[in-house]
């Protein structure tokens, strides 16, 4: 069992993720510099939060072309598990691995707070440690987290059980209160909240632990 954490210029949660996976859960973890192409020996890849390449043009728009992400796309094709947190979620949508887009928060403020979420694990491999309908609390920290997708596609996502995390108070105006999405295979999870910041008792809250620990499953 080993996890890779992608590091772009501008990533700022890469060390937090590694602390959560390796420091808190004891899973061997290595950083993957954006220019690398070697994913050998990895069981999962995490794209962390931050401001990849300065988030120029759109969040995640430039990161999409990083050499490492070409390998990550192939990894997903082979059934590999990929988790995109915050900026990582934005990157996954820009890559087309998850549908929709993340836009400026409805009220324009950068939001930095704990928020209650409803979990509907369904077929998502990352969420099997949670009960269906369970409420958890995770921190959010984003300016552009308002999920957007056309109504027909949202319905399709709902019907296929791909909306796996929902805000209870919808702080950013996301359609369908979507906080996290999985792909039809359940291998890819993108979410705006930060599970890695809820793994260490020192920083408050442990609700993120089961998400990252699901890999040990």
């Amino acid at each position: 069992m080993a996890i890779g954490v992608v590091v772009f210029p501008g990533s700022n949660c890469d060390r937090d993720v590694r602390w959560a996976t390796e420091g808190c859960l004891g899973v061997p973890t290595r950083f993957l510099w954006h220019e690398e192409r070697d994913l050998s020996g990895l069981d999962a890849v995490i794209i962390p939060g931050g401001f990849s390449y300065g988030d120029y043009l759109r969040c995640g728009a430039i990161a999409r072309f990083a050499p490492i992400l070409q390998e990550v796309a192939a990894f997903v094709e082979r059934g590999g598990r990929v988790l995109g947190i915050c900026n990582g979620f934005q990157v996954l949508t820009e890559m087309g691995l998850l549908p929709g887009a993340l836009t400026r928060n409805e009220k324009l403020h950068f939001l930095c707070e704990d928020t209650p979420l409803q979990v509907s694990p369904g077929h998502c491999q990352w969420l099997q440690g949670y009960g269906d309908g369970e409420t958890i609390r995770l921190p959010i920290a984003h300016g552009e987290g308002r999920y957007q997708v056309d109504p027909g596609q949202l319905q399709q996502l709902e019907d296929s059980g791909c909306v796996v995390l929902r805000y209870q108070a919808n702080p950013n105006g996301s359609v369908g209160a979507v906080a996290g999405l999985t792909n039809p295979a359940g291998t890819v999870l993108g979410l705006m909240p930060h599970p890695e910041r809820a793994c260490d008792p020192a920083t408050g809250g442990l609700d993120g632990r089961r998400l990252l620990a699901s890999l040990l499953g």
Binding site: Y56, A61, I62
Partner: peptide, 14 residues
């Protein structure tokens, strides 16, 4: 314009 430069570099990668 660093954003323009980064986008130009991405155009090449595309």
């Amino acid at each position: 314009d660093p954003a323009g430069e980064a986008t130009r570099a991405a155009a090449n990668r595309l």
